[in-house]
Design a protein around this nucleic acid. Sequence first.
DNA 1: TATGAATGAGAATTCATTCAT
DNA 2: CATGAATGAATTCTCATTCAT
Lengths: 204, 204, 204, 204
Amino acid sequence: MASSTTLKLKQQRSRERREQILAAATKLFGEKGIDRTSLTDIAATAKVPLSSIYDYFADKRALVLEVPEENFAALYQRTEPLLSKGSDPVEQLKITFLTNFEYISENPSWGRVFFLEIWPSVIAAEPQIKKAVDKYAMRYVQLIKQAIRAGSYRKNLDPYTAMSLMMGGMCHVTAVWLLYGRRYDLVKKGKAVFTTLDSGFSNN
Amino acid sequence: MASSTTLKLKQQRSRERREQILAAATKLFGEKGIDRTSLTDIAATAKVPLSSIYDYFADKRALVLEVPEENFAALYQRTEPLLSKGSDPVEQLKITFLTNFEYISENPSWGRVFFLEIWPSVIAAEPQIKKAVDKYAMRYVQLIKQAIRAGSYRKNLDPYTAMSLMMGGMCHVTAVWLLYGRRYDLVKKGKAVFTTLDSGFSNN
Amino acid sequence: MASSTTLKLKQQRSRERREQILAAATKLFGEKGIDRTSLTDIAATAKVPLSSIYDYFADKRALVLEVPEENFAALYQRTEPLLSKGSDPVEQLKITFLTNFEYISENPSWGRVFFLEIWPSVIAAEPQIKKAVDKYAMRYVQLIKQAIRAGSYRKNLDPYTAMSLMMGGMCHVTAVWLLYGRRYDLVKKGKAVFTTLDSGFSNN
Amino acid sequence: MASSTTLKLKQQRSRERREQILAAATKLFGEKGIDRTSLTDIAATAKVPLSSIYDYFADKRALVLEVPEENFAALYQRTEPLLSKGSDPVEQLKITFLTNFEYISENPSWGRVFFLEIWPSVIAAEPQIKKAVDKYAMRYVQLIKQAIRAGSYRKNLDPYTAMSLMMGGMCHVTAVWLLYGRRYDLVKKGKAVFTTLDSGFSNN
DNA sequence: TATGAATGAGAATTCATTCAT
DNA sequence: CATGAATGAATTCTCATTCAT
């Protein structure tokens, strides 16, 4: 009993430290860029001794790669329940798209890291990152294909081009939002982007 | 007379060296990322002594910032003559958009640097970069506004959102093209992007 | 009674662990060198928690110094019974010398540690090591002196020089054997070394 | 003229620095062992900034490997002229053997590095080191073979075993000399070793 | 007694920048 | 003007050792 409690406490502390490090990394990567952020910086921000970082991550590269991992998981967890009911592919596409805007809106650090540092960038070529991004992109491609089959979207719409427009639009709008000091409502902007694209994709 | 000739020769040599350095920087930044590229690498690639870089650029930062400068100039020089005749704003928009795809297609190093390293990224916040990018984006905004006024595009189209879709689409499509080994015709893909967006922007 | 049994079991376990650690250290020191072997490596190889090493050895230095200790003890234990009978000093010298070759042949890890890492090396200056090595060398010196007195070896033979040749020969032959992948019978080689030396030492 | 002088001065300074570093490395490697010697130590001893070491050696490994290189060259340079005249293989063997003792006697730091750290040790497996050592050992093997052919040494002498005894004897005697504070004349000891071996090798 | 977790003190290496010539 | 050489300041990573439980 006691030992089980202790273990849990320890594990709890460990998990917290890990998260502190990831949070610090996310914040600093977004602010200064991944390469300009030293582990010393991260340790200081996370209030953890530098060498302790190595208790949780094999090396800097591993830490960098876990930042998206963590956030994609959170994003999926948030999107899933909203989708379960709606069966209309266009509706599902909209929910998926806007939930991402919401997530970024609430986690701008993550937005910074992802859209200013990870995608698109040379590290997006890292298999671990590429796989995660591809998986996310494929959701869009699938939904767009369904929408075409359902007759909502034009038969001659290339689903990959359409996905590129959705991802690229999100990227640009988010980057501008971040670089200009987040002076407007990102989700509202996301809705405008969706509406414009949707009308271009539709069988008018 | 003789000295004037000498001077010219020197200036000539200087200009060449400067360009060699910028070309080497563009190439290497795109391949390895800005922070992972050392001035020693650049000097070696440009076949110029390391310390000579400091005769042309104040420091690494200055060199980094001049890389987009140089390339935007080249892009403008290429776009301008094509625009002079056409007066239809949609046509001008299309030319401007596709010329950029052509430029990237022919200078993939520059594509890499710009879309994987500079925009969007934390260094895009640098005033010098931001100004150059904004200037380019505003061309799109102006043309889109003209197209709306001319009745080609919908009255309720937000020109900024539309511009974001064009820039973001270009960014995404280019990044994927680069990250997946340039396996298809980028300009063709650019045309598909334009067509899709154009139909969404239009008064159908 | 029960507690005594428990105690014995514990002591048993303790002794086993100690030996596991020493065996792992011997193996790894020989493979990678003493300084390149971390206590973490040793713990992992010995399947013992890292911090448990400190229950058996004061620090890394102490562990390093006990590795020869342990092995000299084993070597003596093996040599003693063979000597008891033979009274001819030259015969005893031969047995002592060849038994060492046999021991190395059967424990090449130990051979590696001793001849590639400990002797000769700066750590051979450590009193604990020096004492053990000196003790072993003195056995040779004594037997050589006896052989001189018995008339088997030349009167003008310097017993220390002779011992150096035996030890040095063993060292060189073993090192070559190890560095070239143990491609021949070390004991046979040892016999050749002994024969050659013996004939140089003898009153021909 | 001036620039040529300047160049020479620079090269001169460079060569000196390089040698300072190698000398410091040799000294410290012999005193503390290669792995226990940090580049910081070497830089301090050589009175050179740490990072300047990298102007002369690619990394620590390269520096370690150049220490024997340098000294073998010096040893050969010293041995060669003495050999030119003598044609008797045994005489040549003696000169080669004793010149090495002389060299160590005058460069005990090198003796320490070579016999306490490099040979025999795990780094002796490094191709660059192995090659150099093998080359030196083969000289002995050749001369011994010649001596056998000339009838000076026994027909049934294995030249490799004989070489091992010469090298091993030198190693042991030198190591003891170093570890016991160089309290006697190493060259004299070398002569005793040679005499003893020679009588064992000979057709008495 | 046993041990998982933590950490301080280095270690090697890199690189932008300076400067003497 | 040009440049080879030099270097200080970081940076990532390792590891022996300690300690709370």
